[in-house]
Amino acid sequence: HNLTITQGKLFFHYNPKLCLSEIHKMEEVSGTKGRQERNDIALKTNGDQASCENELLKFSYIRTSFDKILLRWEPYWPPDFRDLLGFMLFYKEAPYQNVTEFDGQDACGSNSWTVVDIDPPLRSNDPKSQNHPGWLMRGLKPWTQYAIFVKTLVTFSDERRTYGAKSDIIYVQTDATNPSVPLDPISVSNSSSQIILKWKPPSDPNGNITHYLVFWERQAEDSELFELDYCLKGLKLPSRTWSPPFESEDSQKHNQSEYEDSAGECCSCPKTDSQILKELEESSFRKTFEDYLHNVVFVPRKTSSGTGAEDPRPSRKRRSLGDVGNVTVAVPTVAAFPNTSSTSVPTSPEEHRPFEKVVNKESLVISGLRHFTGYRIELQACNQDTPEERCSVAAYVSARTMPEAKADDIVGPVTHEIFENNVVHLMWQEPKEPNGLIVLYEVSYRRYGDEELHLCVSRKHFALERGCRLRGLSPGNYSVRIRATSLAGNGSWTEPTYFYVTDYLDVPSNIA
């Protein structure tokens, strides 16, 4: 807008934040220059609390790290170098490059900038070799853009010569660093050979998330399962459950009422301010606690030095998902009996873990797994792929695949051998790939016309006998059925096997 004052003059007093240069501009645009008398524009009460600059400061050096910015700028000295009290560095987070010096300023003089007072450097006698002032900004957020400017702080001049310097606002972004852990990993099994893994992005990506790394490792069953005799009275049979499938998407929606109208769909109840505040506090606490764990609990591995020492970490090797089922080394339970199943799973520490690289999504279907087997899954978020990966501390989750139908069934015939004193040795093959492992066998036998009897055969007993022995049988026709019990439950009964026990007292003698 054009402003013209045809008559009258300007009068400025007691404006401590208004620089004289701005008042002189007002004289020019209003056409009143030359009308004012000496005392109409006070030299001592206008701009006496402001830094009124008329020179431009330029930054000469900028260096960044993930949490620091090192700045240096060209030296500046007023005509009387004693008038320079120091520099004021202003900075704040700036997602967009549209910041002005006066953003967030209120009537009390406060604003949204963080201000650092910096002492002037030592003055050199040689004007050509003056030290460049600077400042190291610490405690910054990774991968965050900051708006920065600097200006001088000078003393009051009796001659009211307006001098000083100020830089333009520059924008500097800190470097990326390792992201925080992925949030809320959930693993479920939808079949006997697959596990579905879902997660949420890290709360602090500290860069642009480029991919996720998912490692999985087959877990050995508890050692007590191999040692305890679950045929003993009072000892509860062990059981394991597989990871249940995901709930429906509708039930997972946030901010939804727990109660549904019987007449149909209901609208979600909005969260109160107290609920939102509580969630923010919980989120802040979780982030602080995660940072504490990362800094205190997890110790970084030592990389190899120039002395030739090897990095103890196993090298990563990509495998196809079809090879995942046989990740671990199978060892027989008892070496003397080769027909026992290889369900003991000690994992070799030198073995390469299978892994998958996930790009542009937060889910993965891990296939080719062994049925009813526990897996430990390790999830890392990465925001750099080359020249070397920059990934987060791992988040861990466990899951067990679903049982395989008929995996616990005894394959092959049940054979028998009759000894003296009416002892019958029953023999059968253990299931080759049971659900988890076989903890015991149930032997059901009966003599024709009598009630059915049951015998429990422990895992250890089966390994020693290759089956079991029935003792003290009365003469007669017998039928026997056997079924295995694994961590997933009972298998199917075998087809009945028949044998006849004679009275050993009636056996004919070869003595003449």
Rank of each mutant, 00 (worst) to 15 (best):
T502M: 15
S203V: 04
R313F: 12
N421V: 11
K361Y: 13
I377G: 05
E279C: 01
R446A: 05
D385I: 10
P346I: 15
Y448L: 08
N326A: 12
E281A: 11
S342L: 15
D408Y: 01
I377A: 09
S251Q: 14
A407S: 11
Q384I: 05
R240L: 10
E258W: 14
I438N: 03
V414W: 02
D261R: 15
Q219S: 05
E433L: 02
I418D: 01
V324S: 07
Y375Q: 02
P403W: 12
P349M: 10
H254E: 03
T494K: 03
F462C: 02
M427G: 13
A405T: 14
H371Q: 11
P349E: 00
D250E: 12
S398R: 12
E249K: 13
V439F: 09
V501E: 01
D273Y: 06
V423T: 14
T347C: 06
W242H: 12
A484T: 13
K236M: 07
S257C: 05
A394Q: 11
C266T: 08
P434A: 06
R318Y: 08
T485F: 05
P300Y: 03
R286Y: 11
H416M: 09
F355G: 09
D311C: 03
R218L: 13
V296G: 11
W216A: 05
P338A: 10
A336F: 10
A395L: 08
S486W: 00
A395K: 13
T303Y: 15
P300L: 05
L277P: 08
A394R: 06
A263N: 15
S509L: 07
G325E: 06
H454I: 12
L453F: 11
A395P: 02
G374V: 08
P508W: 02
T497V: 08
N295F: 07
E433T: 08
N435V: 00
L321F: 12
L379W: 02
S342I: 03
R459C: 15
S509P: 14
V358R: 09
N295P: 13
V334Q: 08
K302H: 13
I377P: 00
E247N: 14
A399H: 13
Y292R: 07
V424T: 03
E310K: 01
T343N: 09
F298Q: 15
A405K: 14
S262G: 07
G436T: 09
Y441Q: 01
R481M: 09
S284A: 12
S304V: 08
K460V: 15
R301N: 03
F499H: 01
V443W: 00
F298K: 01
S315N: 12
W242Y: 05
L321C: 15
P387W: 12
T401D: 00
Y448F: 13
N208S: 12
L487T: 08
C456T: 01
P403K: 11
Q219M: 07
T340I: 10
S304E: 09
G467K: 08
S262Q: 05
E227W: 10
G264P: 04
L213S: 15
L440G: 05
H416C: 10
E282H: 02
M402D: 06
S320Q: 07
L369T: 05
G436Y: 03
E247W: 06
D385G: 09
R319I: 05
G308L: 08
R471A: 14
T288K: 15
H454E: 13
N206M: 04
F285M: 15
V334I: 14
Q275Y: 07
T303Q: 13
V329L: 09
I366Y: 02
E356G: 11
Y259I: 03
I418M: 02
S479I: 06
F337N: 15
V331D: 13
T485M: 07
E247H: 09
F298T: 11
F246C: 08
E465S: 12
G412M: 14
V414F: 03
T303S: 07
L379H: 01
Y212I: 09
A405D: 08
N422E: 15
S492V: 06
L473P: 02
R313S: 10
D323L: 07
H416N: 06
C456M: 02
L437V: 11
I410M: 03
R286N: 04
Q219N: 08
S262E: 01
D385T: 02
N255G: 07
E282F: 14
L464R: 13
R301K: 13
A263S: 12
K460Y: 06
A484Q: 02
K236T: 05
N208M: 07
S262M: 12
G472W: 09
S344K: 07
C266Q: 11
V214K: 00
E495R: 07
T307L: 10
L455D: 05
W216R: 10
L470D: 00
A335Y: 06
R400K: 05
T210Q: 06
S367L: 12
P387S: 06
E258A: 10
S344W: 12
P496M: 02
L235E: 07
N421G: 03
S474M: 06
M427H: 03
F285S: 08
I438S: 03
E442T: 05
P475V: 09
R218F: 03
C266I: 14
R370S: 14
D506T: 15
P245L: 12
A407F: 11
V439H: 09
S458E: 11
D311H: 14
F337G: 14
Y478H: 10
L470W: 02
W428V: 01
G472S: 07
S479C: 03
Y498W: 05
M402R: 02
R353L: 13
L277A: 13
P300I: 06
Q429Y: 13
I377E: 00
N339K: 10
E420D: 10
H425Y: 09
R471Y: 15
R319M: 10
T497M: 11
S262I: 14
R400F: 12
V296Q: 08
K233M: 14
A488L: 06
N255D: 08
E420K: 15
P354S: 12
N422R: 13
I482G: 00
F372E: 04
E281N: 07
E227K: 08
V324M: 08
D323G: 09
K432M: 06
L237Y: 03
I209T: 13
N295H: 03
D311G: 13
Y445L: 14
N326H: 12
P244W: 11
S223T: 08
A395C: 10
D311V: 00
V296L: 06
R481L: 11
F499L: 09
G467M: 04
S223R: 10
S251P: 13
T288Q: 07
E378M: 04
E279D: 13
A484L: 02
Y396E: 03
C269R: 07
R318E: 11
E433H: 03
